[in-house]
Design a protein around this nucleic acid. Structure first.
Length: 288
DNA sequence: AACCAGGGAAGAT
DNA sequence: ATCTTCCATGGT
């Protein structure tokens, strides 16, 4: 067992990460201890990294610990990547000064992109969540993980694509997936296993290349592709305009009386580039 | 009881 | 290319 102390130079709201994590039923966390446990797979080996938040938004500090000495550096690096500890909010903050989002943005300083833990997990989660209310979506997530994933050190690991690729559509129908959703999840997993879709490689492509590649797959539209760029890769300039949460948040904040159209969203968000993702997080947060 | 939900495919124009 | 319609299922 090793422990590493981390101090960030940028502001960072770790409690927002904790709050978001409470929405996922299978995530191991301790609100009072400000601690989350993150599953990390390195070279097919399962590791659990404990992340304990200390300090404040202005002076964020962490103690992270895990058991594998050999994988220590890789685990520290991966956790920093997942939690976006390399992001410097200085230029992001400056960017929103004087924009139409300024007031809301600075009401929630240091809001990080809450990345998913794993590229495959993020993509499949996106498919499962399509058109479902959050509560039921998380219920489906939990059933899926409990049946086809595995537990290690009291932390749930997501199913592997190899496991899901071998399932029949009926297997997921039993968990109350719709027929379509079952097909999308299993067919996408099969493409990953047979090499037609390489998420690690895709992670290095441009935003536009990622979208072009993903929306060719049956079951993945623009919303799911953008969702993966944002929550899977942590890209900085995504504003899912078709997302009902974004629409509702803008309706309330700009006092529109109705949900804005895609075109209206584009007009109002012009000045947010290249940090639209941080605007998105702030908007979602504002209605949570 | 109707309408909504952090959509997408397939068909129609 | 852009617009409907249908798909499924739980939540409010």
């Amino acid at each position: 067992m090793w422990t590493e102390k981390i101090e960030l130079t940028s502001i960072y709201d770790f409690d927002y990460i904790l709050n978001r994590s409470t929405m996922e039923p299978l995530k191991r966390l301790d609100m009072e201890q400000r601690t989350i446990w993150i599953p990390v797979e390195i070279a097919d080996e399962k590791h659990v990294v404990k992340v304990h938040g200390k300090g404040s938004i202005q002076e964020p500090k962490f103690a992270i610990s895990s058991d594998s000495i050999a994988a220590r550096d890789a685990l520290i690096s991966e956790v920093g990547n997942v939690l976006q500890w390399d992001v410097d909010f200085t230029s992001i903050n400056e960017h929103f000064i004087g924009t139409n989002l300024e007031k809301l943005f600075f009401a929630h300083p240091g809001t990080p992109i809450v990345k998913d833990h794993g590229l495959y997990f993020s993509l499949i989660k996106g498919i499962i969540h399509q058109q479902l209310n959050m509560k039921f979506a998380h219920t489906l997530d939990a059933r899926f993980v409990q049946k086809y994933g595995g537990q290690h050190e009291q932390v749930w690991f997501y199913p592997r694509p190899e496991t899901v690729a071998r399932l029949s559509y009926e297997d997921l129908r039993e968990l109350q997936f719709s027929q379509r959703k079952a097909e999308y999840v299993i067919d996408t997993s099969r493409k990953i296993v047979n090499g037609e879709l390489d998420l690690e490689q895709l992670a290095t492509a441009s935003d536009q290349e990622v979208i072009d590649t993903l929306i060719k797959l049956r079951g993945i539209g623009r919303w799911t592709a953008e969702n993966w760029l944002l929550f899977g890769l942590g890209r900085s300039n995504l504003l899912p305009k078709a997302d009902i949460g974004i629409q509702n948040a803008m309706k309330f904040y700009f006092e529109l009386g109705r949900k804005p159209s895609i075109q209206e969203i584009e007009e109002m968000s012009e000045t947010w580039t290249p940090y639209q993702s941080y605007a998105s997080m702030t908007l979602w947060r504002s209605i949570e």
